[in-house]
Design a protein around this nucleic acid. Sequence first.
RNA 1: GUCCUCUUAGCUCAGCUGGAUAGAGCAACAGCCUUCUAAGCUGUAGGCCGCAGGUUCGAAUCCUGCAGGGGACGCCA
Length: 562
Amino acid sequence: MRQRIALLVETALRTAHTSAEFVTDPLPSIIIGTPANQEHGDFSCNIAMQMAKGERKAPRQVAETIIRYLGNGNGLLLKTEIAGPGFINFFISPSAWQGALLEIESAGTDFGRTTTGAGKKIQVEFVSANPTGPLHIGHGRGAAIGDTICRLLGATGWDVTREFYYNDAGQQITNLALSVQARCLGIEPDDSSWPTDGYQGEYIKDVARSYLAKETVHADDRHVEALGDPHNLDAVREFAVACLRREQDLDLKAFDVHFDVFTLESELYRRGDVDAVVKSLAENGYTYEQDGALWLRTTEFGDDKDRVMRKTDGGYTYFVPDIAYHLNKWKRGFTRVINEQGSDHHSTITRVRAGLQALKCDIPQGWPEYVLHQMVTVLRAGEEVKISKRAGSYVTLRDLIDEVGRDATRFFFIMRKPDSQLVFDIDLAKEQSPDNPVYYVQYAHARICSIFENAAEKGHVAPLQPRPEQVAALTTPEELQLIKLLAALPDTVADAAQQFEPHRLTYYLTELAGCFHSFYNKNRVIGEDAALTSARLYLLARTAQILKNALTILGISAPERM
RNA sequence: GUCCUCUUAGCUCAGCUGGAUAGAGCAACAGCCUUCUAAGCUGUAGGCCGCAGGUUCGAAUCCUGCAGGGGACGCCA
């Protein structure tokens, strides 16, 4: 609907322009807003005020000219008004709103989807947890946000590649291997021979046990058979990585999160990508030797100090393969790349971008794009659950899904803007009450389904394709309000996708559910008047459809019974 | 000290990339079930949008300072 208004305004402006009514060139971009106050119509446009200065006319005068060229858009508009300092307010005719219901039905599960990204590739990297332990609650938020962004982008037509990157060869992995090896040999964390910085969690014991039992593990991206020999550190490492990768895969599957591509840091080394990047950076004159290390002049690109690329021990620091990895993404043809990460890793942004600029291969300055999420604190019985890695007492993603369920976990992780901190109240998430937004929304869907069961018993069936005079029976403010919200789904999805802000859709759903519950309490659906009954059943069928469409985009189920 | 981020009702948070009288949910108070799921609804009350400047027709929103919370400042990832 908003798109249509924008189009109307654009045509009006163009016609007025060719008729030499306006001198402004180029015309400013048209922004259609939705007024907070109902008296100001369904949509509004501020363009007259934007143009007033260039036109050297009063805003209201400019607005008058625009309206003169506007027409009524084939019956779409009931009326237009000039209001306040120069707003143009649009009032959509009730028949246009009623007609929207028919469009919603014919679009079916596609209603809400748009085509802005059609034919364009985009890559989203998220989670990217190293295989050194189970996924924790922070990864959970990243998984939920990243996955939902992918779903949103998919819903707006983009060809999305979901990617997971991990380090399978660094010092942390060696620590992991040493820890498993120690457990194999019966060494305890308190023993003097326990490796420094070893991983002490219980899961390490499980890995050691499986290794000694010569088990075979299948992860999404690797299959490894245990040799059973604790002294073969490389074999232990291979096996441990596979084990932990498999655990992560299981967690992610339980969360209904899937990846198209796994990229391994070791691959970048093996293929020579890392060396090639170092060579290129050196040739471009952005490196220098100092204190036995090789440095990159990241300060040339806005960093506050230069960074070490190659340590005195000869190994590269983590951001060097990171640069190689992103060059690889670029070479694969992704002109748009989004990295979803915890905000505690924000310092890598400058380094990776600086490295890519220093390669001098025409990568845009702001590439890749980042979505950073803030910390999660867990609340149980009103108390913050303290995270203690030593005791291994931190809340894992799996614990959370097992305890509160996948739907609630997903909903809670995305219901706040990524860059604001999130309080995850476990008790609330489990609660089956209207205080819990997930239940509130799902209940609306279940309630409608229940009404339909009831209607069927009484012999009512919602008309599949109602005649115009039937939908025309939907005239109360509650009915029109509900229709307006239903029709707003495509705009909401498009905005959420463009801004990488999944929470917009959870807010939309809460509002829609509220609007339905409100309607339900005020109006009887199944009544004496057969025509009105079938019109209202039709409205509710569309409401259930929209609830389901939106929930599906979020990866959350729409139960028919609760 | 430097960088990032946040600061909106008692609490948890929205605020549609600068618009009109700043919203929702919880908590508080007052109401609504012989009727399609009360797992729901209606109403009341509650605000120096952290502070101070600036930009312009117009600022919660953009810019600059300041204060406070969180995070990052490693030859870890």
